[in-house]
Design a protein around this nucleic acid. Structure first.
Lengths: 168, 168
DNA sequence: TATATAGTTGACTGCAACAGTAGGTTATTT
DNA sequence: AAATAACCTACTGTTGCAGTCAACTATATA
């Protein structure tokens, strides 16, 4: 697996959605301002997140993105997998053509490492991150949650099964 | 931390050294042939490994590289740290200027992840890898260890303290 | 119906790191 | 002196990251 700031951006943006997703879709323009991430870049990232069914989109005024699943069911690993290029560290792609004599000595090492990392990243869900963040906010004097008045209706996106409301 | 095939090459090459380092220095030309890694590229990598004091070098005919420490004291993390660019996933570089409102929400996440990975990679030493490899060779019929006759003398590099012999 | 909003898409840029190449120098042995 | 092999610098092509631009479509509101 590959680790760059790209994945970090995606997780940060998803956190933003998770934290303010209670009243309808969140527009990328807002995420861009709050998290200081280029809007166009966010659009690319959310294109991937959408294709991986991690978010649902709502077009038109008042539209934006919603997290498509209960927060507890979206892990950091999911997000990174969606936006980052894979980087198959085993070169041979799992096949055994590594090479003649030593037959890819480090093969196990890398696949083990890879799964260790996924194990960890899969153990952290957006729900965990949100909880941790809320806790921190409460402790540090609850810095005025700056309500932005929304425009359109969109109480909830049409294409989302009501599963999400159950947990989040 | 950043993960690419560069680190994998370095670990593979160090494994090669570890496996055949019993009788003197190992020349990069040999490593290049056996592991199918470009010689010049290896030279670059070993330049870094040397500067990080993971290997000792011996020049002239019969020269080459030796692992500078007992195999149990060289971890995969050491090797990767030596050759790979760092990639500070926390952007703010540990300082608290992340940014105003949310103050870098994902800060903890990334630093935690980073240390998890280092913990794992630091837990695997060359000695472990060699043991695992030897075990595998023994099981699969011990494929003729192809002795290459060496040229020069160099029973052991001059600039290595005899620590290495203690464990390896 | 017109207009503004906001997602959707594709093409494009600059940049840095990776992976590899080329050619030279220096030290050491035979 | 000649061969070996480390050492070093500079260069190349490719890839993925990060960001930009411009056009397009769907929706809501006036």
């Amino acid at each position: 697996m590959r680790l760059t700031t790209k994945g970090r951006f995606a997780v940060t943006a998803m956190m933003d959605l998770a934290l303010r997703g209670d009243d309808g879709p969140v527009a990328l323009a807002g995420v861009s301002e709050r998290q200081r991430i280029s809007l166009s870049y966010l659009e690319q990232l959310f294109g991937k997140l959408r294709r991986f069914k991690l978010v649902d989109s709502v077009r038109g005024p008042g539209g934006g993105y919603c997290i498509a699943r209960p927060l507890a069911m979206v892990t950091v690993a999911d997000i990174i997998r969606a936006v980052d290029e894979p980087l198959d560290a085993t070169q041979c792609g799992g096949r055994e053509n590594c090479h003649d004599e030593h037959r890819c000595m480090t093969h196990d090492l890398w696949s083990t490492l890879n799964s260790k990392m996924y194990d960890y990243l899969s153990s952290v869900s957006l729900a965990d991150l949100v909880a941790r963040q809320r806790e921190k906010e409460a402790k540090s004097g609850a810095a005025a949650p700056l309500e932005d008045r929304r425009v359109g209706p969109h109480p909830r996106p049409r294409n989302t099964r009501d599963k999400a409301a159950a947990v989040a």
